[in-house]
């Protein structure tokens, strides 16, 4: 995790304090919107609740549009933004594992901590298992290191890779997102039996 500012306007200690408050706000909003319930989270896989997919699409879309406008007006220098390196093969395999774990466990790592905070038993089990998993992973890491580094493409963005303009990518993404919102609403209407 990087500092909030690069030139030391905010000291390291205050960075942590601010991070703490951002984390608290994040956790509070997540819990308040019901994301500590595994029934709500996995609803997206069974077709009765699409809050997860909507939240992700909305967050991504708002971030894209906001960043691009602010970058254009010079309020943000996005050449200093961190772009995660892309590892195609390991991302695909990791994504499958993550998805399976998500359906089976009913949480993703962040929401499981949220469930722990409000004392949910399944949240506790999930989180303990999560740390066991991390431990096992660290033990077998030497064997799976080639997979871990598979398909390294470096710090690359979709728009750079395909050579499309950022604006048109954002527009395409917005259209897809709104289509997803619409389709999920239709599916949601058809489902009568909702068990939370």
């Amino acid at each position: 995790m990087g500092p909030l500012t690069y030139f030391g306007e905010i000291s390291t200690e205050w960075n942590y304090v601010i991070a703490l408050f951002i984390g608290m706000a994040f956790g509070y909003i997540m819990e308040a919107s019901g994301f500590s319930s595994s029934r709500k989270l996995i609803g997206v896989f069974y077709g009765y609740d699409f809050a997860v997919i909507r939240v992700f699409f909305t967050a991504t879309l708002v971030a894209i549009i906001g960043l691009l406008y602010m970058g254009y007006f010079g309020w943000i220098d996005y050449s200093v933004l961190f772009v995660h390196p892309t590892f195609v093969a390991s991302a695909a395999i990791g994504g499958v594992i993550m998805g399976l774990g998500f359906i089976m466990g009913g949480f993703c790592p962040g929401t499981s901590l949220c469930a722990v905070a409000i004392g949910k038993l399944d949240g506790w089990v999930f989180t303990i298992a999560l740390f066991v998993g991390i431990f096992l992973y660290s033990q077998v890491f030497p064997w799976i290191e080639p997979l871990y580094n598979a398909g390294d493409m470096g710090h690359i963005k979709i728009t750079e890779y395909f050579g499309i303009s950022q604006g048109w990518f954002a527009f395409g993404f917005a259209v897809v997102a709104v289509a997803v919102f619409f389709i999920t609403t239709l599916i949601r209407r058809k489902v009568k039996d909702v068990r939370y």
């Binding site: 879309l61 708002v62 894209i64 549009i65 691009l68 406008y69 254009y72 303009s165 950022q166 604006g167 048109w168 954002a170 527009f171 993404f173 917005a174 259209v175 997102a177 709104v178 919102f181 619409f182 609403t185």
Partner: peptide
Amino acid sequence: MSKRYIFLAVLLIGSAFGLTQLP
């Protein structure tokens, strides 16, 4: 579909389209 959602959808697509039109 409530008017609010339609408004938000139009707002998002509209502002994203605006990005493509920036010189």
